[in-house]
């Protein structure tokens, strides 16, 4: 049976930076998107090619969905780049995680305890808490930056720190705790789902190889899509809620 670990394995170091297998997978996913973006940008035309048509369809679906959350197209377009990148990156990372080779191609190394262990070269990006935490921090910090820019420092901070009354003061404290818990909930939800999926696939694959894993692979595809959508929606809600003057 494969080695199951919460912590991602370090493959090598670039200076002081340990490069883990999840990080390598994230770089590959990013590189894929960057190459795709360069290819598209060189061929953008009024009459779209098949590839441009596909990209436009994806963008139109995402922006249409964001419009239903934000209420208007202008707000949807404002937050579209960050939310769409979150959705697409999480989706691609989740789906890449169940491809053959991810988790199975690797090398045998000798650990600190002297035992030889198998280290996979690639691992599903969001089965590493560092990755989900980074994304959650980006969302929460950016939501406050957008809030500060849109409604102003005084109004935005007034939602958290207020001395207008004891009830409002404690509400502000609860809001601060809520923001901290938002980071934890966002990161652990995605991590929990993806990591559980990984573990489930490893266990099923070990118990009944080949056929039995197929339904679970389908389930993981679905979970990957749902988790990407949830993260994107929650990010959009966080951004748009702080940019409304009447938000609490």
């Amino acid at each position: 049976m494969d080695h199951i670990s919460i912590v991602a394995d370090t493959l090598f170091h670039i200076g002081p930076l340990p490069v883990t297998n999840t990080m390598l997978t994230a770089w590959i996913v990013s590189l894929g998107f960057i190459i795709f973006a360069f290819i598209i940008s060189r061929r953008v035309s009024y009459i779209p090619s098949k590839l441009q048509n596909f990209a436009e369809a994806v963008i139109e679906i995402i922006i249409g969905f964001l419009e239903t959350i934000a209420g208007d197209r202008k707000t949807a377009e404002r937050f579209f780049p960050i939310v769409a990148t979150i959705f697409l990156f999480v989706l691609a990372s989740n789906w890449l995680g169940i491809l053959p080779g991810v988790g199975s191609i690797g090398m045998h190394t000798v650990g600190h305890d002297g035992h030889e262990a198998f280290v996979p070269l690639f691992r599903s990006v969001y089965s590493d808490l560092n990755m989900t935490l980074a994304l959650a921090l980006i969302v929460v910090v950016l939501s406050h930056v957008y809030g500060l820019i849109t409604v102003g420092v005084r109004h935005h901070l007034g939602k958290f720190i207020t001395f207008k009354g004891p009830v409002l003061f404690f509400t502000g404290i609860l809001e601060i705790i809520g923001e901290l818990s938002k980071v934890i909930s966002l990161s652990f939800r995605l991590f929990g789902n993806v990591f559980a999926g990984e573990v489930l696939l490893i266990i099923i694959g070990s118990l009944v190889p080949y056929i039995a894993t197929i339904p679970f692979l389908g389930l993981e595809l679905f979970v990957g899509l749902i988790q990407a959508a949830i993260f994107g929606v929650l990010a959009m809600v966080a951004f748009s809620s702080f940019t409304r003057a009447d938000s609490h």
């Binding site: 998107f33 973006a37 940008s41 441009q52 963008i59 579209f80 769409a84 990148t85």
Partner: peptide, 11 residues
């Protein structure tokens, strides 16, 4: 990169 080369031109 995606904003500059993908989203902005396509949007």
């Amino acid at each position: 990169v995606l904003t500059k080369f993908l989203y902005r031109p396509l949007l």
